[in-house]
Design a protein around this nucleic acid. Structure first.
Lengths: 229, 229
DNA sequence: TCAAAAGTGTTGAGCGTACACCCATGC
DNA sequence: GCATGGGTGTACGCTCAACACTTTTGA
């Protein structure tokens, strides 16, 4: 079976930058290509947009197939449509990025295939296609958006310490923040819920746990909001 | 002649929001559709992405065809890929927006077709497809970007008064700004060149003319930059 | 001389930034 | 008792926001 059109059409794909955070730093999930072109090179998870799914659904399908996850922050980034992106034929791709909480999830990719692995964003291998450009755009978007939207929490466990939160911002923004100023700012935004729990199994004084509170955030938003610390 | 593929492919189009500024307010160029679907409805300029042009080139081609212009600010916005955007078949469209200086240009669309017209952004007719959503996204992007990038100048003549500049910001942001604070802020950013000219043919004291200075701007950028007035 | 818009400074409040020490806990 | 990170307050400078009158010009 084949499908015919009066004019030639580019193929349409999605490519996804899945960000995760661990003790090493900010990580990106890559897939080792088994086929030409770029056989053996690392690449972003991605694939064709099916005719019966929206482009958002195509990105979510990639997410599910590669990580087993469904309900994570996922956002469209940019569409790349240069002529020679793919040496085989004309392919236009829609870039997406997602934020994954590596702490609370046991990921399919981690246990599963030898052809998928997490790489530190500051030490990426050579990539297939123009995927380096997509990752660069995703990182730029993340860096800017994390400062005025509460999306950084998606990278943390549901309950976290203020130090974990600060480390997350420092890792994403790639610069150190002042502890006292950070805590002052983040608490006065009044979007965190202080829990009656402390962290467990640490070899020093246990830190208090907090949780992001959506309702409090919505209120705080009305007064303006940013992390320009 | 026809083109066959193993799997069905969505059609790929671009749709463009061309913004212009006149004394009435912020305007958008629309085209009256001559064919079904939505015959007689107003729609954004747009069309298919050709197989031998990038998506940016497709958007620039639309710009040229509808306005006769070439060198204007044009930027990709978002890709819309829902299943039923177009009642005929699956069409994925890449939204663009551009800023057009209505003062310095005699536009093709203005003189030309009865099927093209500029509409005030606050008083748009019913639109074809999901073009209202594209315009909404374009306006949101413009409002936010104009505050931290010097793109607002694209809507003004090359030489302008500070009052014109302020009116431009007030129109785009849809809120009044304080005259003294505005002038202080914009002058201290040190990206305007004060000219030895004043406006002509006005029935009151003539205002001094200024010009945006790219080189000064680049310097100013390094110290941070925004219009949060 | 009148109408219309140009042009111009000061003050108070809030926010960002810099900075250092004591405390609680587990080993 | 010591190593490790948790937790806390103050002071200065800058930017934002509010606010009203005089000047210039053409009609």
């Amino acid at each position: 079976m084949s499908f015919s059109y009066q004019f030639p059409r580019p193929a349409l794909t999605v490519d996804c930058v899945f960000f995760g955070l661990d003790n090493e730093g900010l990580m990106v999930l890559l897939i080792k290509r088994g086929l030409d072109p770029f056989r053996g090179r690392w690449a972003l998870p991605g694939g064709f947009v099916h005719i019966d799914e929206t482009v958002d659904e195509a990105a979510r399908r990639e997410l599910r197939e590669e990580t087993g996850l469904q309900r994570v922050f996922l956002e469209q980034l940019y569409t790349l449509g240069d002529l020679d992106r793919d040496p085989r034929e004309r392919v236009v791709t829609i870039g997406y990025y997602a934020l994954i909480n590596l702490h609370d999830h046991r990921l399919k990719a981690a246990s599963d295939a030898a052809n998928a692995a997490w790489f530190d964003i500051v030490d990426l291998p050579r990539l297939a296609f123009d995927h380096d450009a997509i990752i660069e755009m995703a990182l730029k978007r993340l860096k800017s958006k994390v400062r005025y939207c509460p999306i950084g929490f998606e990278l943390l466990p549901r309950k976290f310490t203020l130090s974990q939160l600060q480390r997350m911002y420092e890792t994403v923004l790639a610069r150190p923040l002042d502890k006292r100023n950070f805590r002052k700012k983040v608490l006065q935004l009044d979007m965190l819920e202080e829990l009656d729990e402390v962290e467990q199994d640490v070899a020093h004084r246990a830190a208090r746990l907090y949780r992001f509170n959506e309702a409090k955030y919505v209120k705080a938003t009305e007064q303006g909001f940013n992390f320009e610390i």
